[in-house]
Write a protein that binds this DNA or RNA. Structure first.
Lengths: 206, 206
DNA sequence: GTCTATAGTCTGATAGAC
DNA sequence: GTCTATCAGACTATAGAC
């Protein structure tokens, strides 16, 4: 008969699974989804291919989990800044964009994998959800700004989607990650563009 | 020894290749890149798998050609409106966005495949080029608007990239293609958002 | 028992014979 | 042009190490 796993065993399993996910994330950030074969991931995690399939039913499921964890972190960080930051809606929006951009520029491989890389088919749905969540957090700030008369009347959902796409596109294009002054310039322009996009008045003044 | 192909043969080959590309485009628009196997494409084109490889050296090459043709059409249409349309930069930008959006909403399957679908690894480069070209046409209008004092000072490249990403994201998300009034609303919001994004003054006024 | 290594099956891309 | 063989990579089954 089947015995319940002891806590110690459960912990060990969970730890191994965690490590597997982390290693897989590194591999993907390094070589992209296309080249992240199960064999390569297993090797990076120091385990056999068979063991990988003890943690995940398929390569796609592992990919989804890798994607979910990485993207959840980003959405969470952004959401905190947008919701709990200080200042009015425009200031929080600008701050959120800066944080998002800086994080992406620091981990370009991961950002590219999350935002734009040709991906496992299984990631289609996960990516959609990721974007929905980004929209949700942006939608809230935009709505707030409109309610406060800070932004003009607009469909907050559309603006939120636009911000999501715009920021992703700007950050991902130069596969060559800009550094130093170039990065600062990019972030500054991105913040200005986001404010204009929402219709913050300062945008047209300067 | 190898004889030069007669013109008649060349024409027949070119026609077959054309049909193959068109059929492949339909298949991709229907089932996405992931399910567009060479077998499926060959079947749709009424030829054998082996024949497909007489026209293209690899599946990736065929995918790139499908992508190139479809995206080139879109970029061209947009470019014409933005360059040769009537009115100032803001008016042409708004008009270009409307045209782009309407076309995408009419062919949602193809739009999704071009803009956002999980794709063949080989398409990574093609997609980058596609986006660079979008940026290029947007960059020109934005520059012109800035020069005319219509838009505020800004990095036109960044705004162009943002417009590319924003429009794509807004159009692609609701995999359920909006129809009738909903589509009109979406297009109108998209145009307003694009003008705000570039900093057109009317945007903050109403 | 759980992990590893390994050798198999299966699917789909690709090459080559016909 | 078609058909068949090969190859790669996802996935599975099994045997042995600890």
């Amino acid at each position: 008969m089947a015995y319940r796993k002891t806590p110690a065993v459960q912990d060990r399993l969970a730890a191994a699974k965690d490590r597997l996910i982390q290693c897989a994330t590194s591999v993907v950030a390094d070589v992209g989804w296309a080249n992240a074969s199960v064999t390569a991931v297993a090797a990076a995690a120091g385990m056999s291919v068979g063991s990988v399939y003890q943690h995940f039913p398929s390569k796609g499921a592992l990919a989804v989990e890798v994607f979910r964890r990485a993207s959840a972190r980003e959405v969470e960080v952004l959401g905190e800044v947008l919701r709990d930051g200080s200042g009015d809606a425009a200031e929080r929006l600008a701050c959120g964009v800066r944080v998002f951009a800086r994080r992406a520029l620091q981990h370009p491989g991961l950002a590219y994998a999350l935002l734009a890389a040709p991906a496992e088919p299984a990631l289609g749905e996960a990516r959609s959800e990721f974007r929905r969540r980004y929209r949700a957090v942006f939608t809230d700030v935009v709505r707030e700004g409109v309610a406060a008369g800070l932004f003009p009347q607009q469909d907050a959902e559309v603006t939120a989607a636009a911000l999501t796409g715009a920021i992703g596109e700007v950050l991902v294009d130069p596969l060559s990650a800009p550094t130093g002054d170039a990065a600062d310039h990019l972030v500054a322009e991105l913040m200005a563009m986001s404010l204009r996009c929402a219709g913050a008045p300062s945008a047209t003044t300067g």
